[in-house]
């Protein structure tokens, strides 16, 4: 395999600070490989990160970077992308950033179909702050704030993004590293909002508190719990909820926000920028 992807990594910043057995490094390498495969140069790429373990990912990437506030990676990335559509803008978020504190922004970035690509690492808990439950922690699982089990159900990020209007949505796990890279590559080349969710390992907290003390245990769990979209069709609703359904949820070609905004601009220009003379079915 070509080593060209290393130009997207900051070698001097490595080794990374994540715990042994964390899946973040697998996703980081997948991103670098996907960017190289897309033939991009580092100056054409912007990564926007939030807060959390995965929020530190920009420290290791040799591209333009904006390390922002917790949950706000998507609206920051939106402000960049709508003004500079020629740039490849990636929002790197954990389950806290994307689905919990920033959940509202996920709905609207997908609905707006802005050309940002969300790379979401879902480790089912808040690693950075000591392993508390997040909005993707499955019901019943132990975390440091649900020591007797989580009373809430977890959110299905991929299905929410698909329902909200994202053009491209796929989910995989860090056990399926090649698939992760392929999905990121596809998301980058697809128009509109793209989201790749990667179920990941956290042996330090989520694994340790739920009977998976080592990285190997967690990798075996991801291998066994994953069910392809095809296989999941034959499962009962209850069984499906216990599994992580992986695959490509949608791959649409709807015009993105910028295309639609420019179409509106043409209409406005033809009217002499006079809304009174535009026939939009009033």
């Amino acid at each position: 395999m070509s080593r060209a992807y290393t130009r997207f990594l900051l070698g001097k910043a490595l080794p990374h600070f994540w715990c042994p057995g964390c899946g973040n490094g697998i996703v980081l390498a997948a991103i670098a490989r996907a960017l190289a495969a897309a033939g991009l140069s580092p100056t054409e790429v912007v990564v926007v990160t939030g807060i959390g373990c995965w929020g530190k990912a920009d420290d290791y990437l040799n591209v333009n970077a904006f390390h922002g506030t917790h949950g706000r990676a998507l609206p920051i990335a939106t402000g960049i992308k709508v003004n500079r559509p020629e740039l490849t803008v990636l929002a790197l978020m954990g389950d806290g950033d994307c689905a919990t504190i920033g959940g509202n922004h996920l709905l609207h970035a997908a609905r707006r179909n802005v050309g940002v690509k969300a790379i979401v690492v879902n480790n089912f808990n808040y690693g950075m702050t000591g392993g508390q439950y997040s909005s993707t922690t499955p019901g019943g699982k132990a975390t440091s704030t649900s020591p007797f089990g989580n009373p809430e159900e977890g959110l299905d990020i991929a299905r929410v993004a698909e329902a909200a209007g994202a053009n491209y949505v796929a989910r995989s796990t860090v056990y399926h590293a090649a698939q992760v890279e392929a999905y990121i590559r596809e998301a980058i080349s697809a128009p509109g909002f793209g989201l790749v969710e990667v179920a990941s390992t956290c042996p330090t907290y989520f694994g340790r508190l739920n009977g998976m003390r080592t990285a190997t245990d967690m990798m075996k769990w991801l291998r066994d719990v994953a069910a392809s979209l095809n296989a999941a069709r034959d499962l009962s609703e209850e069984e499906r909820r216990r599994r992580i359904v992986i695959g490509k949820f949608c791959d649409r070609r709807a015009p993105d926000f910028n295309q639609r905004y420019e179409a509106i601009r043409r209409v406005a220009r033809e009217s002499g920028f006079n809304p009174g003379v535009v026939n939009i079915g009033r």
Binding site: V46, V48, F66, G68, T69, R72, P75, I76, A77, T78, G79, I80, V82, N83, R84, L87
Partner: peptide, 9 residues
């Protein structure tokens, strides 16, 4: 957040 992103751009 979007205002800041735009200005960064």
């Amino acid at each position: 957040a979007a205002v800041i992103g735009a200005s960064f751009a």
